[in-house]
Amino acid sequence: MTFIDTNVSYGHWPFARQPKRSVKQLESHLQKHGIQQALVSHLETLFVPDPNPTNRELIHACKRYENLIPVPVINLAMPDWLRNLEAYRNLTNIKAVKLYPNFHNFSLNSTRCRELTQYLSESGIRLIINIRMVDERHQYHGLKIKGVSTKQLLTYANRFPDFKFLCTGLFRPEILELAEKCPNLLTDLSFADWHDLINGLLETVSPDRLFFGSHTPLMVTKANTYKLEVADIPKATKRKIASGNAKAFFRL
């Protein structure tokens, strides 16, 4: 089975002992697990106010690895986000940008987020919103960051009903809470968990809204590939979630 992974990070997460991989090693690791293409953001962008130098570093590094699609992180709390985004577009064919609202301390319902949404709508670039990086119950005491609230997501989704966006890191109950109220919300499955998960979700969510995300390197890659591989669902649905939906949405 092959995958397009919508939730991969490059770099080191400082609160756990996890493999430190070069870009080349990351690509090999993903290939080993059947992940043919991956949307990758740089972890360092979460911990610095200005993600611009790190985004550029990632874009440059991914040029040698066509299966790794760099996804710049936009910090809307910084004044020059638009100038940076336009510069990235001159460097490469940007498929998506990613937001970490609670790491960078801005709201999805801010004026800047409205401006970004309008810009992305016009340019055809996709938006990924990261909800959380870890289970909040087990955060390192030196860094406690809440997940983006469903209330904030609901307001954002309803403000731009024709704008589809992908969330990474939603828990299963959050997906179920938002599914009917936000038909423009798409989600990865990295944090969604329950016995016979996908069949349960499909009672409420159409299969074209579910995306594969491994959350590598924070999670064990195989745990999320195997979760989908052995899911008791029709093969066609499995293929859509594994790669088809991402291929269409990100125009890969």
Binding site: W194, H195, D196, V220, K222, A223, T225, Y226, K227, A231
Partner: peptide, 13 residues
Amino acid sequence: IRELGQCIGRVTG
């Protein structure tokens, strides 16, 4: 509470 595939994969992976 958990998906079996995910639980097995965390060990095999």
